[in-house]
Nucleic acid binder design. Structure first.
Length: 921
RNA sequence: GCGAGAGUACCCGAGCGGUCUAAGGGGCAAGGUUGAGGGCCUUGUGGCUUAGUGCCUUCGUCGGUUCGAAUCCGGCCUCUCGCACCA
């Protein structure tokens, strides 16, 4: 039977039986699991499939352990990308149109997708279908999209309550900004400058006539060592009114400052060369210093005015030397002033490093390295000299903030932001820094809030726990986060309708909404009737008396449903979301819900790669669920993903290996069809019975902690290999085989549910394996002896093969010798550790003493290895005798099993416990 | 730069002080068997050696601890992810 056909059949059967609709049974524990809803700008891909399949495995496992299980699903539409996609379609962008076509949209339909809501509706339907075809055991009644009016009411409630508690505040923040797009330029929107953030320059004002020449620096402490000002003669400077002052700065700086909350009026352009040679006053030292020309000044960076600190800036020093050498200024007329002392760098640190790097002029390529080295050393270990007045003797790191504050207070300093490196927007425009005003922030920096989250984190179960440091790190690092934008889809900030709640910020506690989503739908509650008070009652149990918008009975049903499912037992996601979404999830729960409703567990997994490479559209290795289902079907896809990686490892999708998994599933399907008539009372059955117990135990533990690769090894791959061995070992099947098949089928049901259902059916069961009981350990079936016996037989078969290979011909007869009694005695003694290799003790036993030298050699050998308890002489003999027919069949020869005690053959004498002697005749 | 994680044979991976040439899978090769329409089953897959269970060399790299290290410690190299106003 074709896999796809088989899958369709069982999906339809589950759906008809409403198997996954979560209608809780009384008196039964619950399990509520969720994963982030997918974003609706494309079809689900393998990354989604991985997380969702993992979640489904949890859900199905617990369903088979008699829990009420809720696995809900919804769709994310908030934010810019969908609107952007709609716009691109309107603009007939071929890439975007191809995405649609690949998702199955016909040529004629495409123009409809200029409406964002159409895109939402389309992908919601498509992805629902894909999730269904993957066999995810979802309660579909509860689905929604984040732009549904009902959901928006829920978000409104959330933000009202957050604001009341002081967790939402307005703030002002520097962002990288594209002047053309008039919006912040996030990393993903940049052609150049990924990871670049705003950096604050200190502006230092130097008095020049009735104005200030304003220099920008990252090292304001060096103001005490300024010897001159640098300008580039060809740069365009303007007089600009900034507040009540007049600044002389570059034209572009004036424009930038307008975006940084400065009231700037641009006035006359200055004839820059005329300034050269004139003097300004350093207001920190009251010295008069000259303005000089230098080529290295970049007029587009900061103010275009640079102060010169030749003792600490290699560029400044070299530019001065160049002027001296050219005779523009007198040698020694400007003396470097040391303001930072670093041991070993002398009175002029800049000169010292320039010498080290053999730098001679301001055009030297090594200047950058020299500068880097010096800045680093001075910043980390430098102390300020007595030229700096009250800061003398201190470390820069310790006084920098204070120093800047003092200079500001004195009116000689200000601040200007620049990107720390060049940033170019996708629109091809160079970005600047803008200070965004009145932006709404979630105050994640709030120490009280953080403390609450810490409490939640302390008791949170993490799968795997290795991810914990990442959470702790994030918690400490997290600052206030902007939570609103001015464009895109989503819910408006309830008290400030210009703003729309941003996408990560509206997706933090929606798991609570799942608990009531189906009731809202079923009762046809109008969105406006979902007032904040309704949610207060449902989620917090406040007074419901005043609520008139929703009937009391419905309110009670919702409240009950919430109490049934909350808190979330596990939330699953890719590890990259720890740093934002998963942590926000904790923050918002602690802020809004009672502690008994805070999350209980989080599971994370690595990002899926394809053939060893990160999946990306541009690389062409982007595999959608549509592709995977088409090529492999649901169960093979699921099996490939689940068995590919666990923990934090990155799962890798490999087409060849995935294909081979089909064979494995087919093997099982075939066996389940055989309808074996078991023969009772067979020795080898003890082995299989026993083996299965170990697998059950391991599979249980692994499923419970989300280690699905291990789970499948124990539930599927290992038992299948054992069954293969079993079938090789025996002609007639015993009771252990149907037993093992039954267990395997139930154990793999959480991972490959369709094949499991089919097998379950073929084994003659009625009902669904999806709701059958997961196997439990039967400790009375464990037999170490049986397992050891089988290992011995396997080992012996291998040894015979080995010998046969060396001999180069097939034997007529094989005699297998079990080692002499005394060796077992010695071995057993050593295992117990009784004599720890003390030969004298062993020799007290006359049976052993008889063998003198052989004993000593044997003991010396055993001392070198770690010993494990093995079978005794009689058990080995029995096991091998029992396997005689097997050996006979395997090697096509007469086989005899004997004890070495009875013969004198030297090869027989070499036999040891666990390693029988083999003699060919 | 800061933070987190990882480097194991042809590939994916398990192993986390002695049982390690290192589970399991995939691929490849040889052989057997045969139509269980996805075949099935053996065997081999670092080198040398042997009527067998032995030796040498290997777990990013260089050192260290230990009777003993893929496993513990330190340095170095390489890779992946995150560093936010973005899903």
């Amino acid at each position: 039977m074709d896999f796809k056909e088989l899958e369709k059949k069982w999906q339809a059967a589950w759906d008809k039986a409403k198997l996954f609709e979560a209608n809780p049974k009384e008196g039964v524990r619950k399990f509520f699991c969720t994963a982030p809803y997918p974003y609706l700008n494309g079809p689900l891909h393998l990354g989604h499939a991985f997380t969702y399949t993992r979640l489904d495995a949890y859900a199905r496992y617990w369903r088979m352990n008699n829990r009420n299980v809720l696995f809900p699903f919804a769709f994310h539409a908030t934010g810019e990308p969908i609107v952007g996609a709609a716009k691109r379609i309107a603009a007939k962008d071929p890439k975007q149109i191809k995405v649609l076509k690949d998702s199955g949209v016909g040529e004629r339909e495409i123009k409809k997708f200029t409406d964002p809501e159409k895109i939402v509706a389309f992908y919601a339907a498509l992805n629902k279908d894909l999730a269904f075809q993957l066999g995810l055991s979802i309660d579909w009644r509860r689905r929604f999209t984040t732009i549904d009016p009902h959901y928006k009411q829920f978000i409104t409630w959330q933000y009202l309550r957050l604001k009341e508690q002081g967790y939402v505040a307005q703030g002002t923040h520097p962002v990288i900004w594209c002047p053309a797009c008039k919006s912040p330029t996030g990393d993903h929107d940049r052609l150049e400058g990924e990871g670049v953030s705003p950096v604050a320059f200190t502006l230092l004002k130097f008095k020049f006539e009735d104005a200030f020449l304003v220099a920008a620096t990252l090292r304001p402490e060096t103001i005490y060592g300024v010897t001159n000002i640098w300008l580039r003669p060809d740069s365009t400077l303007v007089k600009a009114t900034v507040g009540s002052e007049t600044w002389i700065i570059s034209k572009s700086a004036a424009a930038k400052l307008q975006e940084q909350q400065k009231i700037v009026t641009v006035g006359d352009t200055i004839n820059t060369p005329e300034l050269i040679g004139k003097h300004v006053q350093n207001l920190a030292t009251n010295e008069d210093i000259p303005i000089l020309a230098a080529d290295f000044v970049d007029p587009d960076n900061a103010t275009g005015v640079v102060m010169s600190v030749p003792a600490h800036a290699p560029f400044d020093l070299m530019a001065l030397r160049d002027l001296e050498n050219a005779g523009t200024i007198k040698k020694g007329s400007l003396v470097p002033v040391q303001v930072v002392a670093v041991p070993g760098l002398g009175a002029n640190p800049a000169a010292t490093v320039c010498e080290k790097y053999k730098v001679k002029t301001q055009h030297d390529a090594n200047l950058v390295s020299a500068t880097k080295e010096l800045y680093k050393k001075e910043f980390h270990i430098g102390t300020l000299t007595d030229k700096t007045g009250k800061y003398a003797g201190k470390k820069i790191t310790d006084v920098k903030d204070e120093l800047v504050a003092d200079l500001m207070k004195a009116g000689i300093a200000d601040t200007m932001y620049e990107p720390e490196a060049k940033v170019v927007c996708r629109s091809n425009d160079v970005c600047i820094v803008k200070i965004l005003e009145n932006q709404w922030f979630l105050t994640y920096s709030n120490p009280e809030w953080k403390k609450q989250v810490q409490k939640n984190l302390d008791r949170l179960t993490l799968h795997p726990d290795e991810i914990r440091p990442a959470f702790i790190y994030t918690l400490n690092w997290l600052q206030d986060k902007a939570c609103a934008r001015k464009s895109g889809l989503g819910t408006r900030v309830p008290w400030d309708s210009e703003w729309i709640i941003e996408t990560l910020s509206d997706s933090t506690i929606y798991m609570a909404y799942y608990t009531i989503a189906h009731i809202i739908k079923k009762e046809k509650i109008a969105p406006e009737n979902l007032t904040p008070e309704v949610f207060d009652y449902v989620f917090l149990g406040t007074n419901k008396k005043k609520i008139k918008t929703v009937p009391e009975a419905v309110l009670d049903t919702m409240r009950k449903e919430f109490l049934t499912w909350y808190p979330v037992d596990i939330r699953l996601s890719a590890d990259e979301l720890v740093y934002n979404h998963l942590t926000f999830f904790l923050f918002h729960h602690t802020a809004l819900f009672q502690p008994e409703h805070w999350p209980l567990g989080i599971g994370v997994n690595g990002m899926v790669s394809v053939e060893g490479e990160k999946m990306s559209k541009s690389k062409g290795n982007f595999i959608t669920v549509i592709d995977a289902l088409e090529t492999y079907g649901a169960d093979v896809t699921r099996l490939a993903l689940l068995s590919s990686a666990e923990g934090l490892a990155q799962p890798n999708w490999n087409a060849t290996e995935t294909r081979s998994l089909k064979t494995w599933l087919s093997r099982l399907l075939t066996w389940c069809q055989q309808n074996y008539k078991p023969h009772p009372g067979r020795k080898i059955d003890e082995f299989l019975f026993s083996r299965m117990q170990g697998y059950v135990e391991r599979a249980q533990q692994a499923y419970e902690t989300g280690r699905f690769r291990t789970a499948l090894q124990a539930a599927f791959f290992s038992p299948v290999n054992d069954i293969r061995w079993y079938l090789r070992r025996t002609d007639t099947v015993g009771e252990a085989l149907p037993y093992a098949l039954d267990l395997v089928v139930r154990m793999i049901a959480p991972a490959v549910p369709h094949v499991a259902e089919e097998c379950w059916n073929r084994l003659g069961n009625t009902g669904f394996v999806s709701t059958a009981v997961f196997p439990t350990l039967q400790s009375d079936l464990i037999s170490e002896v049986a397992e050891a016996a089988e290992a011995l037989i396997q080992q012996t078969a291998q040894d015979i093969t080995e010998v046969q290979k060396i001999v180069g011909k097939k034997p007529k007869k094989i005699v297998i010798y079990v080692a002499d009694f005394w060796k077992y005695d010695v071995y057993a003694t050593m295992v117990k550790g009784a004599s720890k290799g003390s030969i004298a003790d062993l020799m007290k036993n006359p049976e052993i003493k008889k063998h003198g030298n052989d004993v000593i050699k044997f003991v010396e050998r055993l001392k070198k290895t770690k010993l494990t308890q093995l079978l005794n002489h009689d058990e080995e003999l029995a096991a091998l005798k029992d396997a005689t027919p097997f050996f006979r069949k395997e090697f096509d020869a007469e086989v005899e099993v004997r004890s070495a005690r009875d013969v004198d053959d030297p090869k027989a004498k070499r036999a040891e416990p666990g390693k029988p002697g083999i003699v060919f005749t």
